[in-house]
């Protein structure tokens, strides 16, 4: 039994930003990096399935990115994934999600997994696209936005709950191997112990060069800081002054 988890290193902006000279991306000096929140849930789900099946099988983490992106993968390895695969691509932020899916498909195809997990979306670019594009490229069934998963390895089927708008659950039976995009709240991601983090340093990460990513589905023209519309009226001063103004506004509006 083999589960592939796609994990992305996402970028976060603080309260300042500068763009690169071509105006098409954010200067990396202004970014902090972390493992995408959705991918921690995907990793946990893979680990739990393996535990339920008696610990047999392998959980492989795949990322497309530069060597800095290995940090995110190490987090998954520290949680308990067995090995990592990095597809070497610089500036993933410049790529459209379908191109990223092509890069992922090239290596995942060779792994012949029973299940492939992606997150529903990446926090920095909110595409919600990569997983289902990947399924198409792999020729596999898929289900997006999975909040509950019941996998029957022997029957090659899974019963999943998709979470629709308003929280309505769409119960779906899917044939496996399949690609599932995992929603937050499906489980409680474990914390990696210090020891596990140390051990993860020793786990193997293979690096492969990306093949042909095909024609991009979109190209970035420019990035910019959105013009502040009306904007909020800012309440300044001490916490006491702020609280007092808030209390006044509430009282006035409820009257």
């Amino acid at each position: 039994m083999k589960i592939v988890v796609c994990a992305k290193q996402v970028a976060m902006l603080g309260d300042e930003v500068e763009f690169t000279d071509d105006g098409r991306s954010v200067d990396p000096d202004y970014l902090d990096f972390a493992l995408n929140e959705w991918d921690t849930f995907a990793t946990e789900e893979a680990l739990q399935i393996r535990e339920r099946l008696g610990g047999e099988g392998e959980v492989v983490v795949v990322t497309a990115g530069d060597d800095n992106a290995e940090e995110a993968m190490r987090r998954c390895l520290a949680m308990g994934a067995d090995r990592g695969l990095r597809i070497s691509i610089d500036e993933i932020a410049d790529r459209d999600p379908i191109s990223i899916a092509r890069a992922l498909a090239q290596v995942i195809e060779k792994e012949q997994p029973d299940l492939v997990f992606c997150g529903v979306q990446s926090a920095d670019s909110v595409q919600a696209t990569t997983g289902v594009a990947l399924a198409e490229l792999l020729g596999l069934p898929r289900v997006a936005v999975v909040r509950k998963l019941d996998y029957d390895h022997d029957a090659k089927k899974a019963c999943v709950s998709r979470e629709l708008e308003g929280g309505l659950i769409d119960v779906v039976e899917v044939d496996t191997p399949a690609v599932l995009t995992i929603q937050t709240g499906i489980n409680e991601p474990r914390y990696a112990t210090l020891r596990a983090i140390k051990q993860a340093e020793q786990k193997e990460i293979d690096v492969v060069e990306a093949g042909d990513l095909g024609e991009p589905a979109a190209s970035m023209r420019r990035m910019f800081v959105p013009a502040k519309g009306e904007g909020a009226e800012m309440l300044n001063g001490s916490p006491e002054a702020v609280a007092q103004r808030i209390a006044e506004i509430v009282k006035e509006r409820l009257a």
Binding site: I98, V120, V126, T129, V132, R142, V143, V145, A217, A218
Partner: peptide, 24 residues
């Protein structure tokens, strides 16, 4: 719409037909 159902099939169509594509 950028909705849960669209997320479940639209990216596959764009990928298969090689369409230009953007979400949200």
């Amino acid at each position: 719409g950028f909705t849960v159902n669209s997320m479940d099939f639209a990216p596959a169509v764009a990928t298969k037909l090689g369409l230009g594509y953007a979400s949200d």
